[in-house]
Structures are given as structure tokens and as C-alpha cells.
Design a protein around this nucleic acid. Structure first.
Lengths: 364, 364
DNA sequence: TTGTAGGCGTTATCAG
DNA sequence: CTGATAACGCCTACAA
């Protein structure tokens, strides 16, 4: 049974001789840690220490190991590392879509902050579909993500259950609600639209239209609509159904919406609140075409403060949120969790109103 | 000397949870494959087969295993899988920045195509810095990426050497050059700007200005400038140094540039070629402020065809590239490589000229 | 400070 | 079609 003298792993056979040595080995032929150990004349444990706890290795030995690794062009295999240490050095983020600048810049902020700490970010897009988000989260859990960020809280309970079950620290981003059971890092969508609506009411507006993204499965947009409605209600006002337009986040949708609002039989609104700058840009564009004077005849507001919004005519009243900062703060929070710090209650970022030319006193 | 156990950086959350477990087993307490095997009354090998080669398992056993997995809420651990199978199911992409829509949508295209095949995409941003790109590629190689995409070919040779050494299939994206030693999937930046320049020359323009992104370390932008220069030269023309502006990709840079061009002592150009729509939007905006008639007094061109470009006044002449498609094609190519298909020569995507109101006949 | 040895969760080989 | 068992590459408790 045991007449073969060569112990398969730690014994010293040359790197090249390896593949021929035994029939059982399935190896890839790549340089591995033990090759480096052999060349440096140290144990595998020492090589590992050089890369994980360098202060515990003498300078001379460290130097020798680094030389050997360089000579063999070796670097640690992440799968082996992850398996042995139960640390994957991976974090995940789920966003609705990269096609929206606000999410892209949030990813960008997180990516940079994580990379600085040697953590790789893996990205999943849900396309605004809760089922897809759940699938992505499960896949990331399987990958062994150490932390996760996810946009919004309108997700299946199983999603958060899974996160808790696996004890993966996570944060809900982009949205912020004080009452949320999750750690939230973002802004209060409800409050932001309250502020915007109050701005218009203060200007004397009493008749409103709303052009907004799909509310389905989207807590952020729902909160915005709720903010508008609550504020109007407080002033004894409401949006007529025919002045409530819901559709995709495009210039084209904004144009279509204003046309239908203008052609409706009911009294025309004096203000249009849009779900974001894209839609507002479309409304402005269509207004120009219909010969509607902005803001004299109609006030228009957006959200996001795109670079273009202060350059067009008339310049667009909108709100600005630093989404890059949201990403950075989220990464910092998650890194703190990984470092064993106590959990925060979340972090509220301000949405800042930018009053420009597209809003003015109501004409009626 | 140093019996202090605190490793400042990499030691983390794992430490606390661990100490309670048995001294021998370091396990995480998570459900593992063998638990499923036990519950289903089969061997671990069979469980593995159910998920990797289901056709080799009888329907009855398969059913039993699936039930057990569901009951225990088990799913395979990626690190263990990667280690044992030498397949990581990870692909990587390196882009300059997510803050540019064209790269974000390329990532989006790849991500979707890969996800459909169970491959996770990991993202790295180089911030237009070749050194950072190299670091990111090495990190991804360590992660065991099975394939890689990287924007542009202006990278350190070590980067491509590493890719070749590890036999990782890769593609250069966004840029396409027939003579490139790499598989390229993108469009010909040189040819695109030749076409744009020819468009203006055909309109009678003889005096040009150029406002473009930084050329340093950026082969795509360099190719664009070369395309402009070569075309002009063929017609016996050239850009005066004071009409050559290089700067960041923003509306503000476009505005600044036009102002300086207009204030220069030399004869004013009749056309401004911009490196992208952002810059062109700035030029248009500043022209309006300076009272320059577009296109009568000055023609302006962009690149990318942003949604806004056909909505502003005057509408912008630009070029359109389907970057989402580039991402999708790249993923398909890389998947083909992983499936062992023969390498393609790359794939050229067309950049389409969109002639609009911002270009017209030269006035001089 | 360094070495030894066993384990991390899964897959692959080979025998039954 | 199924099971036993040895890798996969690295980390870490413990011993020296």
C-alpha cells in the first residue's frame, strides 16, 4: 500500500518534472505557491505569510521569496485563497441598469473605493425586475461575496433573507428612508419631491401635471409620486388622471406626454413635474414646438441635474444628488462592516434644489 | 517582539465568528455539498453530477438530490468549484471610466450576454492610466478570469504578455484596426474621422478647428486626430496650432475652446470638429452666446450621437456607434473562444454619419 | 521566525 | 449509473 516514497506535495520535485511525476495529478501546469517555496528554499507557509502577514517574516527571507515569485511570475490563485481563508475579496452590487448615468456613477464610486482596499466589485443588473435581482444576489452569494449593495428596497423578501442567512453585510442605496429596516445610503425621494412641489406651490401654481418613470417595482419612483401627492393634498390640490403620465425615461416620452396633456379636454396645468431631467428635456423641447412659453405659460422641473440641464434654453430647474458620493459612502460603510466596526444607521445624502429658468410664477 | 495579533488590513470579520467552532475543523457552518449528499442518501460525486452532468444521473436520484438541496437551501460554493474544476466562470473587462455612457453601455451589453451563460463579469476602471490597467489585469488573472475584454490597444506590452502567458482569450474593444495584432471588436476611429472631415470638405470648408479629448495614452483619440490630419493634408490643408484644442470631455471645455479660438489673432475657422457630442454641445452653446450663426457662419460636428443631440437647436451633426452591440459581440466572441471555436479576425462595427443642422456650406 | 500538516468545498478519476 | 477517494492551490493552528 505504501511503498511509494514520494510524498506528493511537499517533496522536492522540479517544476518541469511535475507533470510526468504521477498519473493522478490533474494540475494545470501553472506555477503554484509550492514552486516558489522550493525555489526560495522555504516552506509554503512562509511564502503565504510573505503575502498575507509580511511583518511576521524576516526581511531577508521576504526578499528571497519575492525574488522567487518574480522569477517564476507567480501570484496567488484567488480560488485557493478564498477556499482556504473563507475570504473571497469580492463585493457585489446590483443596480437596475448601467444605461442610467446615476447608477453608473454610483458603481464607479464604489469600484474605486473597493479597489483601493483590494476588493473586486462584481456587477449585476436587474433591469428593474425583482426576480432578476434575486437570481443575481444568489449567484453572488455563491461566489462568496463578502458584502453587497443593492439599489432600492423593493425586492423580494427572500433576497434580504438570503443576505441575512449568509451574514453578508449589505446596504440599500440610492434611496433613504428613516423607517427602513435596512441600512440605507442615499437620499429621501419622498422629501425631495415634497421640496420640489412646495417650490412650485410657492410660485403660485395650483394645477399640476406629472411625467414620471414606471412606478412598478420601483420604490424610489413610488416615493417621488407619493411626495408630490402628499404635498398637493396638504394644499387641497390633486393631479387629474389625464395629467398623470407614466412611461420610459426618455426625451421622447417627455415629448409625447406634454402633447397628450396639451390636447386633453380638461384645463391645462401651469406646471409639469418630471421624474428626471431626460423626461423634462423632452417636455421643454415639445413646449418649444407647441409654442408654449416657458416659464411664463408653463413651469417645468426635472431631477438629476445632468450636465446639459444648465446649458439648454431655458435652463432647467432640477435637483442634484451626488451619486458618485453615494457609491463611495456605501463602499466605506461596507468596508467598516468587514473590519468589524459597529453598524451605522445608514447615511442620508442631500438632494439639492437648483432653481433655474424653467420655473416661474404661475400665470393663473 | 511581535506577538500582537492584529493584522491591520486583511484580517477582518472572519476572526470573531470562528473561535467557537471545533479546534480542528475551520468550517464556516454553511451547508455544503456533503450535507446534501447525506440527506439524499447518495455520494458527493452524484450530487456534483446532478448539477454539472445531469444527463448522467437517473431521474429518480436527480429528483431526490434536488429536493435535498432545496430543503437545505444549498448552492455550490464558487471557490471550491473553481479550485476543483479550474473553471472560474468569471470574465473581466477593463474600461477607462464608467462616467462615459459609451463604455457603460458596452459593459451593459457584455454583462447581459455573459450572464445568460452563467458567467459573472468583473469590472475594472483604468481612469485612462495604462499602469492602472496593468494592475487591474493582473488582479483579474489572479482571480482566474477565463476571458477578458479591454478598451483600446494603447497598453503596456506586459499587459498583453500576461494575457498570452495565461492563455486567456481576450479582445480589444471599441477600437478596430485591420492591422492590429489583437482581435479587435469596434469601429475604425481613423476612418470615422476621415469620413467626418470629408463631409465638411465637400461642403466647401477649408479652415478647421479641432476640439478633442486628451490624446495621451489614448489610441482611439489619436486615431481620430490622425484621421482629420490625413484628410486635410490630402487636400493641402492643415489645422493651425491655435485652432487645435485638447482638454477634458465636457461642455465647459467646448465653451472655453470656442472662445479662445474666436479670440485668436489668426483667421477664424469655418468648421469645428469635436471629439464627442459633449464637447460639441459646449461649442454650440458658446457660439450662441457669441452670436455666431450655426451653420451659416460656423459648422460644428460631434461624435457619439447622444439622445439630446437631435433635440437641441440646431440639431447636431455627429456619428453613431452601437456600443451596446460592441459589448454583446465581444461577449459572443469570447464565449466562442471558451467553447473552443477557432479565433475570428475581429469584428468591425460601423460608425454612421448623422448629418443634421449644425453643418452646412462654408461661407467663405 | 519558520516549518508541518490538515483542511477549505467541489470535481474528476477509476473501479464497481 | 453510482461510489470512494485523491486532487485543486492556499491558509493557518500548532509545534519547533
Amino acid at each position: 500500500m505504501s511503498d511509494t516514497p514520494d510524498t506528493p506535495d511537499t517533496a522536492g520535485f522540479a517544476a518541469t518534472a511535475r507533470s510526468q511525476t504521477s498519473r493522478v495529478r490533474r494540475g494545470t501546469g501553472r506555477t503554484v505557491l509550492s514552486d516558489v517555496a522550493k525555489l526560495a528554499g522555504v516552506s509554503t507557509a512562509t511564502v503565504s505569510r510573505v503575502y498575507n502577514e509580511p511583518e511576521k517574516v524576516s526581511a531577508a527571507v521576504r526578499e528571497r521569496v519575492e525574488q522567487a515569485a518574480l522569477a517564476l511570475n507567480w501570484f496567488p490563485n484567488a480560488a485557493g485563497r478564498a477556499l482556504a481563508s473563507t475570504r473571497s475579496h469580492i463585493a457585489g452590487i446590483i443596480i437596475p441598469t448601467l444605461d442610467d448615468q446615476v447608477f453608473a456613477s454610483q458603481v464607479s464610486g464604489m469600484q474605486a473605493a473597493f479597489a483601493a482596499r483590494g476588493i473586486t466589485l462584481v456587477l449585476g443588473c436587474s433591469n428593474y425586475d425583482p426576480a432578476q435581482a434575486l437570481v443575481q444576489v444568489r449567484a453572488m452569494l455563491a461566489r462568496g461575496v463578502e458584502a453587497m449593495a443593492i439599489v432600492g428596497e423593493a425586492h423580494p423578501p427572500e433576497l434580504f433573507d438570503a443576505l441575512r442567512l449568509y451574514r453578508v453585510p449589505y446596504a440599500v442605496t440610492y434611496a433613504y428612508r428613516k423607517e427602513s429596516p435596512h441600512v440605507c445610503i442615499g437620499f429621501d425621494n419622498f422629501a425631495a419631491y415634497v421640496q420640489m412641489t412646495e417650490h412650485l406651490i410657492a410660485l403660485g401654481h395650483r394645477s399640476f401635471a406629472v411625467c414620471i418613470q414606471p412606478t412598478r417595482d420601483n420604490d424610489r419612483v413610488q416615493a417621488r409620486v407619493a411626495g408630490i401627492r402628499a404635498t398637493l393634498e396638504r394644499h387641497g390640490l390633486a393631479v387629474r388622471p389625464e395629467h398623470m403620465c407614466e412611461g420610459e425615461s426618455t426625451i421622447a416620452f417627455g415629448r409625447r406626454s406634454l402633447r397628450s396633456i396639451w390636447q386633453a379636454a380638461s384645463e391645462r396645468p401651469t406646471a409639469v413635474i418630471c421624474g428626471n431631467d431626460h423626461i423634462a428635456l423632452g417636455v421643454l423641447r415639445e413646449a418649444e414646438e407647441l409654442g408654449i412659453a416657458i416659464p411664463h405659460e408653463l413651469s417645468v422641473t426635472g431631477f438629476d441635474d445632468l450636465e446639459i440641464s444648465k446649458e439648454i434654453h431655458p435652463t432647467l430647474t432640477t435637483m442634484r444628488v451626488d451619486t458618485h458620493e453615494i457609491g463611495k459612502l456605501t463602499a466605506q460603510h461596507l468596508l467598516d462592516m468587514l473590519d468589524g466596526k459597529r453598524a451605522q444607521r445608514g447615511h442620508e445624502v442631500r438632494a439639492l434644489l437648483q432653481v433655474r429658468e424653467s420655473t416661474g410664477p404661475a400665470s393663473r
